[in-house]
Computed example of a mutant assay.
Amino acid sequence: MNETPARALTAEAIGTFALCFVGILAINVDAISGAEGTASLVTIALAHGLTIAVMIAALGAISGAHFNPAVTAGFVATGRMTPVRGAQYVGAQIAGAALASLLIAWLFGLEVVERGTPAMAPLVKPVGGMVVEVVTTFFLVLVIFGTAVDHRAPRSVFPLAIGLTVALDIMATGPITGAAMNPARVFGPALVSGAWADHWAYWAGPLLGGVLAAFLQHRFLMEYAPSLATAEHGGPAPLEERG
């Protein structure tokens, strides 16, 4: 990435802002509009997934379009990003999520932000919910590395593939854990609304799932890139250049 840190961090904040803004409003559209039956699990899933897809298409060339500390953790763990830059990315992602939550609270009230904060279903234990978040985030980061990072993948497919992964994860587990797959998506609205229940699980699960998927792709599934320059954007560096 040749972009300046300020541009990359701004892109990360904008993308995460969009995810939280659209996601929280999609969850609350019935209550805000007064039109019952407008929101459904499918519309909520597509709202999150399509937002991710279009923001990746718009901002991926600037920052890599992580918009998620779990994705950034995967890049740091596999040596694609320094820990310092990773921490900057996470800070920008949290800032974007918090700003979106603050704006929605100002426009529509804190209760809207609280309802839009991912939470465990009443019968779901926190550890079980954490495991669900591990699995769903594993799928997400596996697809990210397989489509956006692997140099063999067609360049045109990854925004839609990643967005659809977000959507299918939400359709499968949204009623169970809220299908966060993203600590910033939980932290921003929790910071504004005070909805901190089981918050640790929304960091532990996605971070673990993201790092596991990144390592699996990096160490086993991905081919070595044909050059070091390719490795910086795609696959691992070739063996002879790894030192």
Score class of each variant (00 low, 15 high):
residue 72 T to R: 03
residue 73 A to M: 11
residue 156 S to E: 13
residue 158 F to D: 09
residue 104 I to W: 01
residue 153 A to T: 15
residue 69 P to V: 10
residue 107 L to E: 08
residue 83 P to Y: 06
residue 100 A to M: 13
residue 153 A to Q: 10
residue 125 K to E: 14
residue 59 L to P: 00
residue 126 P to F: 09
residue 171 M to E: 15
residue 131 V to F: 14
residue 81 M to S: 13
residue 137 T to Y: 01
residue 150 D to W: 03
residue 101 S to L: 04
residue 87 A to W: 06
residue 158 F to P: 00
residue 99 L to N: 03
residue 143 V to P: 03
residue 93 Q to Y: 08
residue 99 L to Q: 02
residue 155 R to I: 14
residue 68 N to V: 14
residue 131 V to H: 02
residue 158 F to Y: 15
residue 79 G to A: 11
residue 155 R to T: 15
residue 144 I to A: 00
residue 106 W to T: 15
residue 149 V to Q: 02
residue 108 F to A: 15
residue 85 R to Y: 14
residue 145 F to C: 13
residue 141 V to M: 14
residue 167 A to F: 07
residue 80 R to F: 06
residue 66 H to I: 12
residue 119 A to Q: 08
residue 139 F to P: 14
residue 128 G to N: 12
residue 78 T to W: 01
residue 113 V to F: 02
residue 98 A to L: 11
residue 125 K to Y: 15
residue 165 T to S: 06
residue 151 H to S: 13
residue 83 P to H: 06
residue 172 A to P: 05
residue 161 A to D: 08
residue 87 A to V: 05
residue 88 Q to C: 15
residue 145 F to K: 12
residue 134 V to D: 04
residue 139 F to K: 12
residue 160 L to D: 02
residue 109 G to E: 04
residue 89 Y to H: 13
residue 155 R to V: 15
residue 92 A to P: 05
residue 130 M to Y: 02
residue 164 L to F: 14
residue 107 L to A: 14
residue 154 P to H: 07
residue 117 T to K: 08
residue 77 A to I: 10
residue 97 A to H: 13
residue 159 P to R: 10
residue 112 V to T: 09
residue 129 G to H: 01
